[in-house]
């Protein structure tokens, strides 16, 4: 049985806006891709998925000031008084 895929809902979750005219195309592609990936064998769960031969090592949690604020803000789409500007989020 072909699975129903709610592109509108997925797009909303992913903060994407899909044009109505392109909705059918995405739905067709996604159905095809999901049909391709859904035949995975049942595997009994056995242990952690972390590779014990390559343990991760985290850095010490200390702050360092490697960059200047103005350098970092150069890439921001809109700034004011050394801050990024976004639309109002509180009433």
């Amino acid at each position: 049985m072909e699975m129903e895929i709610d592109i509108k809902r997925l797009a909303k979750l992913a903060r994407l806006k899909i044009d109505e005219s392109r909705m059918a195309g995405f739905e067709k592609d996604m159905k095809g891709i999901v049909a391709m990936v859904e035949h995975l064998p049942e595997i009994s769960d056995s242990g952690a998925l972390i590779d014990p031969s390559a343990p991760m090592e985290l850095r010490e949690d200390v702050s360092e000031s490697k960059y200047r604020r103005d350098e970092l803000l150069k890439n921001a789409p809109q700034t004011q008084a050394g801050c990024v500007v976004v639309p109002r989020v509180v009433e």
Binding site: I7, L10, A11, L13, R15, L16, I18, M30, I33
Partner: peptide, 21 residues
């Protein structure tokens, strides 16, 4: 939503949708 829809191309959107699914 508009930033991401205008900034990403079709294949990237496809993979984001699949990943979200």
């Amino acid at each position: 939503e508009k930033t991401r829809s205008e900034g990403f191309g079709t294949e990237v959107k496809r993979r984001i949708l699949l990943g979200t699914f």
